[in-house]
């Protein structure tokens, strides 16, 4: 028996919208720790890891570990039927081939029930080793999204370079080239507007912009994004979900031959 209740139901919508551009079908795992997912994109170049900790839910019951294969577009279709202020309760039963979503309006005058079919998914789980990154950049998530969108209209790849000057995003395409430098800036009115650059060693890596632009679908989840870089390691683009957990995207760098 599985029962998860989330008063801030819109959060679940945002989570699904954050990852469905990258992954079509995924296996959600439920345990005492929380509701989690790990999935690769169809080209096996990027990986998404989601964690919603059990403490973050208003009610969390998970009698035993359970994996549920879901189609994210179908899940989005169901969640789109919930109002933005609705309370969402997600229910599953051992051995059942469906799960259910219940949406309650804040005033309790409308209650909707949706049942969604589960899918059989062969999920391969990857072990992600702890790494000490050469550079960690924290910046406003909207700023990062803007940079990826702007550079995506000029080139296919982005070179992210971190030096003591700050972080530089560069691209090159048929029409020309572009460089955007963001300097560390903590002198701001609100902490979420800050850009911080933590650098142990300078680092410069090349990534496909298509994936970076896909990661920015998670922007509504968090005001800040954390980009962790190390030579010849996948970059980690992390959006923290307040009080609950995170969505982390890993992207393999393009390596010079």
């Amino acid at each position: 028996m599985l029962e998860l209740r989330l008063v801030q139901g819109s959060l679940l919508k945002k989570v699904v919208d954050a990852i469905r551009d990258l992954v079509n079908d995924a296996s959600f795992d439920c345990s005492a720790t929380g509701f989690s997912l790990q999935a690769m994109d169809s080209s096996h170049v990027a990986l998404v890891a989601l964690l919603l900790r059990s403490e973050g839910f208003d009610h969390y019951r998970c009698d035993r570990n359970i994996s549920m294969g879901m189609n994210l577009n179908n899940m989005a279709k169901m969640l789109r039927c919930a109002g933005n202020d609705d309370i969402i309760t997600f229910k599953g039963d051992d051995g059942s081939d469906t799960v259910s979503f219940m949406f309650e309006s804040p005033t309790q005058d409308k209650i909707s029930d949706f049942e969604m079919k589960l899918m059989d998914i062969d999920s391969e789980r990857l072990g992600i080793p702890e790494a000490k990154y050469q550079a960690i950049v924290r910046m406003p998530s909207t700023e990062f999204a803007r940079i990826c969108k702007d550079l995506g209209s000029i080139g296919d790849t982005v070179v992210i370079s971190v030096t003591k000057e700050g972080v530089k995003f560069s691209t090159r395409g048929d029409i020309g080239s572009a460089n955007i430098v963001c300097r560390q800036n903590t002198d701001v009115d609100k902490p979420e507007q800050a850009t911080t650059v933590e650098m142990n060693d300078p680092v410069s890596l090349t990534f496909a912009l298509r994936y970076m632009n896909s990661f920015t679908k998670a922007t509504p989840l968090s005001n800040q994004v954390t980009i962790s870089l190390s030579s010849e390691l996948p970059v980690v683009v992390e959006y923290k979900i307040a009080e609950m957990g995170y969505v982390r995207f890993y992207l393999a760098p393009k390596i010079e031959e």
Partner: peptide
């Protein structure tokens, strides 16, 4: 010339 490797090259299967 840059080449894109699958992410599995970087992480182990568990």
């Amino acid at each position: 010339q840059h080449r894109q490797f699958p992410i599995i090259i970087f992480f182990a299967m568990t």
